[in-house]
């Protein structure tokens, strides 16, 4: 029994709007150097699955740029490998995972495959799902569809046979089901439904609050140990940044730092992405700073999410809260005068 994978990168998540103006949920930066889809893709390749379809809807330029031909995940193969399968519909993407409409557009991906089973997964759940184990569980249970569940909640990953997948794609209209998630939630007859209990670390990123909470949750050593397993690495696009520089007078504690940054100021309880500059006497507490941001000297930031390429001029003071972090959109330039 072998697996192929369908990654739903087109699903719409209403609560993440500020971060998805120029990109899909799947390519939201996470944990300093990753994009959300890296976790699903890494789980997939770590289970030796090498037939992977990414179902995407616009705007997907950022996702294509990130994935490329799949080299970072070793999915640039002669046989099978990575398939980028965008929807041609203007308003592609629905609110549940595994849209049969999207699958139908690329039904050949499923028809042509030689694998027996399909993993359907979202691209906004971070974890270390073991699809080999989940498949074994699915086969032993004899159920038609198995859903991965963590701490009682759905992890939006499903396994079913390829034969059933094709049947569902062809009949979803008359059956009035929108997606795999929809089907599992409705528990429509005549299919049987099973559950695979996942015990490891996971984070569901479906709102800004969750994004903020789960990002900073990685500062907990236990979470990191469960997510970054040496035997199951999380792969991402390689960037060739030099190591991060900590200059004299800087002060960094309890923070996760990606490469290529230059730190002159004070950072605590924060996640700093690649190629960020933090100026002298800037104070950051509980912030998530994405790649290529510049924070000039004497800034005072707490509970701030700064998306990619944000420029904060000197002396700016921005204080959010854990429940309502202050979100700066991609490319924004902020001056002292903006917030007086």
């Amino acid at each position: 029994m072998t697996l192929m994978a369908a990654v739903d990168a087109s699903v719409k998540v209403a609560g993440l709007q500020d971060l998805t103006i120029h990109r899909s949920v799947s390519s939201i930066p996470f944990a300093g150097r990753y994009r959300l889809i890296d976790f699903a893709l890494s789980n997939i390749v770590n289970a030796d699955i090498n037939s992977v379809g990414i179902f995407a809807s616009p705007p997907f330029a950022s996702l294509i740029d990130h994935i490329g031909v799949g080299k970072s995940w070793d999915l640039d193969r002669r046989k099978e490998g990575l398939f980028f399968l965008p929807t041609t519909h203007q308003n592609g993407g629905i609110a549940t995972v595994g849209s049969f409409h999207d699958f139908e557009e690329h039904i050949q991906f499923f028809e042509k495959s030689r694998q027996t089973h399909v993993v359907v997964t979202s691209s906004f759940v971070v974890g270390q799902l073991d699809y080999k184990e989940m498949l074994a569980h699915h086969l032993a249970s004899g159920k038609d569809i198995t859903e991965a569940v963590g701490a009682g909640g759905s992890l939006k990953s499903y396994i079913l046979s390829r034969r059933l997948m094709l049947e569902l794609i062809r009949s979803h209209r008359e059956k009035r089901i929108l997606s795999v998630e929809d089907l599992v939630n409705l528990k429509k007859a005549p299919y049987s439904y099973g559950v695979y209990e996942y015990k490891g670390y996971f984070a569901i990123i479906d709102s800004i609050q969750q994004y903020f909470k789960e990002s900073l949750g990685l500062l907990d050593e236990n979470n990191r140990r469960l997510l970054f397993l040496p035997q199951a690495p999380i792969y991402t696009k390689v960037k060739d940044e030099p190591p991060t520089r900590y200059l004299d007078g800087s002060n960094v504690s309890n923070s996760m730092m990606a490469n290529g940054s230059t730190i002159l100021g004070n950072v605590k309880n924060s996640i700093i992405s690649r190629a960020v500059t933090i100026g002298i006497n800037a104070n950051l507490d509980s912030c998530i700073i994405m790649q290529k941001c510049t924070i000039e000297e004497n800034c005072e930031l707490a509970y701030v999410i700064a998306d990619k390429d944000v420029y904060i001029e000197k002396g700016v003071k921005l204080i959010g809260t854990a429940d309502r972090p202050f979100v700066l959109r991609k490319g924004e330039r902020v001056t002292k005068e903006d917030f007086q």
Partner: peptide
Amino acid sequence: SNPQLPPQVITETGRVQGSMVNE
């Protein structure tokens, strides 16, 4: 050649001055 490693972490007790640190 870039190995696939998570970001570096400076913990609560860590202190880094005038240095370069990799992933």
